[in-house]
Design a binder for these strands. Structure first.
Length: 218
DNA sequence: CTCCAGGAGA
DNA sequence: TCTCCGGGAG
């Protein structure tokens, strides 16, 4: 299987028919998505939920409230999500930049996707995946989010990219976006389905016999 | 004990 | 290219 052989739209149908809609991103507001995107960096979502609940209880899921909260207090509240000192700093960086440049989150949507992406990537603590997650799941831009699950899944079709993290991110992202209709709803569901597959079947030690792609190949 | 919806610093 | 950040759950 080479890069030009894989039928990404067909594989989407297989995943969707097997798992059904995933309902990403679970949140009450775009700001909650943005906060969650930072908190979930290399961290299970289950732990992020505890941190989000703490922030809700303190009425901190609000742009001005987050601008004003002490970083140390923020760190204590998000402790369940791990890396809490770094993530508190990253959240402050992100929220401060958003607040400085936009009065309202909706105003970011006035930017082109490239401008919004560059704005986010300039912020310390926001890499490609976090930026694209925010663009897609908080702001609705049609960008395909890549993560470790995605690269592992492609690798098991013998589709491999550069050793460089950054290069493999953009190469695999280009593969999806060149071979799929540019549709934020599709990109939203597809990434969520790949994560679901990666957690349940396409694991580090894979459960190939249960996998929808293995079953289909029989 | 390992793993997790990553990213920065050196 | 390593190393660190880290609590929670299996």
């Amino acid at each position: 299987m080479s890069k030009k052989d894989i039928d990404l739209l067909k594989n989407y149908e297989i995943l969707y028919n097997f798992f059904g809609p995933q309902g990403w991103w679970p949140a009450d507001s775009p700001l909650e998505v943005i906060v969650g995107a930072v908190l979930t960096q290399n961290t299970s979502w289950q732990n992020v939920e505890k941190a989000i609940e703490n922030l809700k209880r303190e009425r901190l899921l609000d742009l001005t409230a987050l601008v004003n909260v002490e970083q140390d207090k923020l760190a204590m509240l998000i402790k369940p999500s791990g890396y809490y000192n770094i993530k508190a700093k990253r959240l402050k960086n992100l929220i401060t930049e958003i607040y400085k440049n936009f009065q309202d989150l909706e105003d970011i949507k006035k930017l082109s996707m490239e401008d919004a992406r560059n704005f986010l990537l300039k912020i310390n603590g926001i890499g490609c995946e976090t930026a694209d997650s925010i663009l897609l799941y908080a702001l609705g831009y049609p960008v395909f989010v890549i993560d470790a699950y995605t690269l592992r899944w492609l690798g098991r079709f013998d589709i491999k990219f550069s050793d460089s993290k950054r290069d493999s991110y953009h190469q695999s992202q280009a593969l999806f976006m060149k071979n799929l209709p540019i549709d934020s709803k599709l990109f939203n569901e597809y990434h969520a389905l790949i994560v679901r597959l990666g957690k349940e079947f396409c694991k580090k030690v894979p459960s190939c016999h249960e996998c929808p792609f293995y079953i289909r190949a029989l």
